[in-house]
Amino acid sequence: MTSPLVTVTDLKVHFPIKKGILAKTVGHVYAVDGISFDIMPGETIGIVGESGCGKTTAGMAMVQLTPVTSGAVLWKGRDMAEMTRSELRALRREMQLIFQDPYSSLNPRMTVRQILSDPMDVHGLFTGHQRKERIDFLLDTVGLSPGQADLYPHEFSGGQRQRIGIARALALDPCLIIGDEPVSALDVSIQAQIINLLKRLKRDFNLSLIIISHDLAVVEYICDRIIVMYLGKIVEAADYASLYKNPRHPYTRTLMSAIPVPDPARRTRRIILKGDVPSPISPPDGCRFHTRCPDRMEICHKQEPAMRRFGNRHTAACHLYTDEQAEPVENKPKAKEKIS
């Protein structure tokens, strides 16, 4: 059995809220509040959720770009928090990022060649005549022509810029790439091109990918495993097929039914949630979804549900299921206690 590339255990990231001249901490934003999962080599994981669910913070904490409050991120078994600065720096070669906005994530004063050379300079790789070869190879890989290497970012369209961002992420032969909403800012026809490119790269380079996205359909297309987050917690995690066929958590179901289907013959009744996502500054007690859950019960606002296992790689945290076998409760209480 192969060991995981990254192991995240009970990761918490809380941001203090400071007020007044003395910058007294008056509260915390519980952005990520105890999440655990593994990433195997060559695996693609999707983290889905709505704004404020902590999906981006989780990704940034994994590469130590945001201070971790508690919990651990292990890279090939080693705790990243215990690494020295130089060790971390060397490690960053193996994990790279792609950002949402292809307009603001490239330096407008640098040519594509400079943008791609930068990470190589930092790590002292591909020097001399290897450099040109490498850049040509990267541009070719992402579907740009080597002749475009001396152009500036503004001379490219949004989709092409995202390709440059991907080439930069690939420059150092990483084993993990984290894409934070990599296709959200793109037009539909361009989005398909980038999704296909990501899928191809994952196959060709045996990459591990983490795709952070609000779009469950995009994630289902690229990822092997999907993690659904709500208010800083993982509510459900499963292989893509298992999640689609058998969503356990009411939030996952709601999310799935909320996506408009491009087929007027399938205008189905959607589950419409009441209200907005509560603030992560004061998340609800018990199950964090209970304020909006269509299936809530008495217990939901008192006790936080534990993560339960359904079959091999499917977990969900919901009181609808019992502990023993994590089978659905036989007699689902008919009179659901409405909490007003």
Partner: peptide, 27 residues
């Protein structure tokens, strides 16, 4: 092209087209 390029939830699970159809080039 537009219709074929949208990732539809469930298509991959149900074994429909592995790759999305792309519209080549740009606007």
């Amino acid at each position: 092209g537009l219709l074929a390029s949208i990732p539809v939830l469930g298509h991959r699970t149900l074994g429909k087209d592995e790759d999305l159809v792309e519209i080549k080039g740009m606007i």
